[in-house]
């Protein structure tokens, strides 16, 4: 009974702030905490804020590119870690996979920015900070998360499934595409979603490596939020939460684990 109460309190703690935020996004009053009646006017304001819309579009592009590239690279890295036992620099490699998972964002952001500046001086690329630099930085820190997700699936996979396919006459490359990939597909999808979320949510690393003209949505929100609470941000936050909620519900249905033989 006490346990149930504690559980309920825990969930209330997790969800109450979000619920309040959503409720107050429909507040007509500009004063956030004074209820001025029901209104959707802040959503209208939001719809006409080109800066926000541009940033959202950029964030979406960055997240899709990041998630796709990070899934490809992360899957390769997972294959390397699970299937190749010995190769030169294995320790360095597994270290480079594990490190971004625990690296404070300010350090990653600083390091990436300093790298881009050094590269620009040395080889002239990337010229200035732009969407390109944001994408590179995002792929780098998302890759590790994809690797961890795919790795756990690969480890579980029965190696004799691949052997059986080889034994039945399928060539190695075909085995990879016909047997291995379909079997780890749920992990790939989960990894893609995770990378997408991390990328579209990132503010600290983006703030370091961004340049003029490449402002992501979290950067816009962050700079507005630093000035204080505003009903427009409440509305924007509600939109983001709704979109994410719907996406997660859909993904959950799609990725529901099926029993494996």
């Amino acid at each position: 009974m006490i346990l149930l109460l504690l559980l309920a309190l825990g969930f209330a703690f997790l969800y109450l702030p979000i619920v309040l935020l959503v409720i107050y996004s429909f507040n007509a009053s500009r004063l956030v905490t004074v209820w001025g009646g029901l209104s959707t006017k802040w959503y209208a304001v939001l719809l006409h804020d080109d800066k926000v819309l541009d940033a959202a579009w950029l964030s979406l592009k960055v997240a899709v590119i990041t998630a796709t590239a990070a899934t490809v690279l992360g899957t390769l890295a997972a294959v390397v870690l699970v299937r190749f036992r010995r190769f030169p620099g294995r320790t360095l490699f597994s270290g480079m996979i594990a490190a971004p998972l625990v690296m404070p964002e300010v350090i990653t952001g600083l390091a990436m920015l300093l790298l881009f500046i050094a590269m620009e001086q040395a080889v002239g690329w990337p010229s200035g900070r732009s969407m390109t630099t944001i994408v590179i930085a995002h792929i780098t820190f998302c890759l590790s998360f994809v690797t961890v997700v795919v790795q756990s699936r690969l480890v579980q996979m029965d190696i004799s499934l691949e052997e059986a396919a080889l034994d039945l006459g399928a060539r190695p490359l075909k085995v990879f595409f016909v047997i291995t990939l379909p079997l780890i597909a749920p992990a790939l999808a989960a990894g893609w979603l995770l990378a997408f979320t991390l990328s579209i949510d990132d503010v600290v690393i983006s703030a370091f490596v961004t340049g003029p003209g490449a402002t992501t949505l979290p950067i816009v929100i962050f700079s507005k939020v630093r000035l204080g609470v505003s009903p427009e941000i409440n509305a924007l936050a509600t939109v983001v939460i709704t979109v994410v909620g719907v996406a997660i519900a859909a993904a959950g249905r799609f990725l529901r684990p099926r029993p494996q033989g």
């Binding site: 579209i200 939020v225 941000i233 936050a237 994410v244």
Partner: peptide, 18 residues
Amino acid sequence: VLPFWTSFLIRVYAWMGI
């Protein structure tokens, strides 16, 4: 798990209003 998937920034922001 769900809150983890919603924006971290927004969740922190929610507390500012509270």
